[in-house]
Write a protein that binds this DNA or RNA. Structure first.
Lengths: 241, 241
DNA sequence: TTTGTCTATATTGGATCCAATGAATAAAAA
DNA sequence: TTTTTATTCATTGGATCCAATATAGACAAA
């Protein structure tokens, strides 16, 4: 409403991230403009913005395509996220958590505990935990008081994670995902403990280890790649789980 | 020539980084377009691109201003650069340097040795070493074979380093800079040694320590800030020295 | 004096026209 | 048949017009 120009960008971004626009699909200004019922000008700006975000790749003279990512890129991106979030954890520990941050982290941990004491996990729980997880990491990044971290991460936000819907995938592997998520939750406890005790180096080490666990996703995607299954860019996995 | 649109972006970027456009200066589309003898369209795209790069800040309804950075942002950005280049060093060690990369690094180290065995350093040497230094780091980032690192760094490329020209500053502190650069050069030797021996963890640790040395710059800028001296965004310091 | 509202103006946002470019294709020469 | 060259056409790039918006300033009322 207030910013119609931004809406075109958001709309296209959403279409890419949701898989509505498939990876590798060609995109030209005129058809896209017509489809979105706007002129070429906002579409042009959107294309360039999304190219900078790494969601589109420019084909000189033939428009853009939705960026295709390889398993190697996913792995590399996980490593990057690991060191950056590790740094965030360290700096969060070196500063002191605000009362609000501390409380929210504690609450997230508690909610997670309740989820995992049930002993089983269903689809809905998975989605819930995913949101909680995302928030947990976000708070730590904010607590680092270092905006450069979020800035650097923004590049790797969505892009490097390609798959059919992670949740759709998880649906078939609930047992495995239960163990993974439970372990991740334990790591969250450890991260919080280190931060709240001001142990920067320990917090960083745990967070990096935590990130490494995400590599299991990269392997799954690798198998999909070999099977020739279609992948699309997905932001749900743009965080460490 | 081949890409006039990109030229407007480059031109504006250069004007910001060189200090021709001062930090905090307001920028509107029409005057800028007239000044560069182009229409508003390429200028608009350039403004948005540079905003995404972090060189401009948008003032809703009143155009843009050249981004102003604080000493805290500079420090934070150095930390980010440290962990990312640390990761690059680790991954470069885990892979194997290509013959060409290894040779070029060795040559850069040798040239540096010659520079520092003179016992003194002049302005020209300083500029030369600066270029060599930049290349040294660049090669390691490439050798990591992890494009996500360069992508994440691109955000912090220029932005966070604000000052009057670093070289202009250095001119008055040659003796101090000599010691700094000499020490940095020794660290380069150590980084290369670790990488070429496949010692990933050691390479990462040294590179992070190497980055920390850059914090001395942040302190200098901090003093300038207190003195109310004008700072401008400068990319020369966008690397670890 | 202060505060609120209204108006004028500076400034960006979008649409459309024309120019430039580059890729694909067809045709011609080797 | 293969390679080169020329031509066509799809597509982006730039300029300018008009519309929308938000800020700043003036003026009036409390």
């Amino acid at each position: 409403m207030s910013k119609p120009g931004q809406q075109v960008i958001s709309r296209l971004r959403q279409m890419i991230l949701s898989g509505e626009l498939e990876s590798g699909q060609r995109l030209a200004e005129i058809p896209t403009a017509e489809q979105l019922s706007v002129s070429r000008t906002p579409v042009r700006i959107a294309f360039r913005t999304l190219e900078q975000e790494g969601l589109l790749t420019k084909l000189s003279g033939r428009g853009y395509i939705v960026r295709q990512v390889t398993q190697a890129e996913i792995s590399g991106s996980i490593e990057v996220r690991g060191v950056l979030e590790g740094l965030a954890a360290r700096q969060a520990a070196e500063n002191t958590l605000s009362k609000a941050q501390s409380n929210e982290l504690l609450q997230l941990l508690k909610q997670g505990d309740e989820l995992f004491t049930k002993g089983t996990i269903n689809e809905q729980d998975l989605a819930t935990y995913h949101d909680m997880n995302q928030r947990f990491h976000q708070i730590i990044i904010e607590a680092s008081l270092n905006p450069a971290i979020a800035e650097a991460l923004s590049r790797n936000e969505h892009l490097p994670f390609a798959s059919v819907s992670a949740l759709a995938f998880d649906r078939h592997n609930l047992a495995q995902e239960y163990r993974r998520f439970n372990f991740a939750h334990m790591q969250h406890h450890a991260v919080f403990d280190a931060i709240s005790h001001g142990q920067g180096s320990r917090a960083e080490a745990i967070m990096r280890e935590h990130a490494n666990a995400t590599h299991s996703y990269a392997k799954i995607f690798s198998q999909m790649e070999e099977n020739g299954e279609k992948m699309h860019v997905l932001n749900n996995l743009g965080t460490i789980t």
